[in-house]
Simulated scan of single mutants.
Amino acid sequence: MTRRSVLVLLFEGVQSLDVTGPVEVFAGAGRAGGEPYEIRTASLDGGPVRTSSGLRLTPDCALSDAGPPHTLLIPGGEGSRCPAPGLIDRLREYAGRAERVVSVCSGALLLAAAGLLDGRRATTHWALCAQLAEEYPRVTVEPDPVFVRDGPIATSAGVTAGIDLALALIEEDHGRDIALLVARQLVVFLRRPGNQAQFSVQLAAQTARREPLRDLQQWITEHPDADLSVDRLAERTRLSPRHFARAFHAETGTTPGRYVERVRLEQARRLLEETADGVEQISRACGYGTPEAMRRAFVRTLHTAPAEYRRRFRP
């Protein structure tokens, strides 16, 4: 087995960024002073493929001619939802020869179809998580994280999450300094922790149709340190607390309390990532009141304490 080689599976309808994003990260390790990866691409029959955007990619070889890799990368794309005949069987056979198997976006559907995610935790693009859970009930689907590592198999969310996962693997292989240099070359974060949410609270929640509720959503985001109890929020919309709670849930798909909790957590995470403010100062600015209250919120949702969360972002 070639040490720390990377083989990328290509197929008709593959998402080009799912391929090139992680490949650029792995290629950057050698430029940053780490041991270079041997990066190759393969299609089922060795022939060229068209990406979902129309680009033509020519692989290095057929999958059957590729040697066992250290890392097998399975990208996503439209072709992962209707795979070519024989692709799943060949993937099932070939994946057992790799030390670790990595998927990006809807590539998780291919891994699940091959039975490689049975009994494991996994994620994929948020829009496909329900499909993954419904079609493959033996897979424990986690819809929120950017990526999930379960033993030798790692799955990631959409497109840029493949970059985060590749950076995490470089850090595992070569150490934090090399991963940091690669991230700087690509002008991205060292990496988002795997349990970071795939998208912001305002994107995750529906935008209310009625102007008072829509304006309130924005006001909550701008004032996480305010009194955001249901009674106070209802006053701002001139509705009774009961009517307000029902209307908010109907139009946003979540309760006022849950929305506030997520806004505060997102704001706290941003301040931990981008500022040098202390945990006590951040807890007050985000409406938690005390560092202990903020710590409990982090542990409950992210399974990590604020100090550990910051350490992952700041060298």
Rank of each mutant, 00 (worst) to 15 (best):
S64H: 15
V148C: 09
R31L: 10
A293Q: 13
V104C: 03
E99R: 12
G96T: 15
P75I: 03
G28C: 08
L17C: 07
A285G: 10
R314C: 10
E273K: 13
E235V: 10
T252Q: 15
T275I: 06
R236T: 15
Q185I: 11
N195K: 14
L165M: 08
R296Q: 14
P306N: 10
P22D: 02
A114T: 06
E78Y: 14
E134Y: 01
H125I: 02
R269T: 14
D65W: 08
A62L: 06
T290R: 14
G30L: 09
A183E: 12
A133P: 01
G175F: 07
W219R: 13
G77M: 09
Q196N: 13
V263Q: 04
A208H: 12
D18R: 07
H174E: 00
A114H: 05
L302C: 12
I39P: 04
G278E: 12
G107L: 00
G257M: 12
D164N: 06
T20W: 08
G28E: 05
A179H: 13
S156T: 02
I170H: 02
E274Q: 15
Q206I: 11
I178W: 02
L110Q: 09
Q217P: 04
H243T: 13
I153Q: 00
R209M: 13
G151E: 06
G289V: 12
E280G: 12
D215M: 08
R242P: 14
A122C: 04
R97E: 08
V8K: 00
R149N: 01
D150G: 14
E292V: 13
T41C: 15
T160Q: 11
F26C: 00
A127V: 02
R176M: 07
L165D: 00
I282V: 04
L181R: 14
R312N: 04
L7M: 04
G21H: 00
I282T: 02
S200N: 14
D45C: 10
V230D: 04
P193C: 08
E222V: 06
T41W: 11
M294W: 12
E172T: 01
M294G: 06
S52N: 03
R138F: 00
C82E: 15
A29F: 00
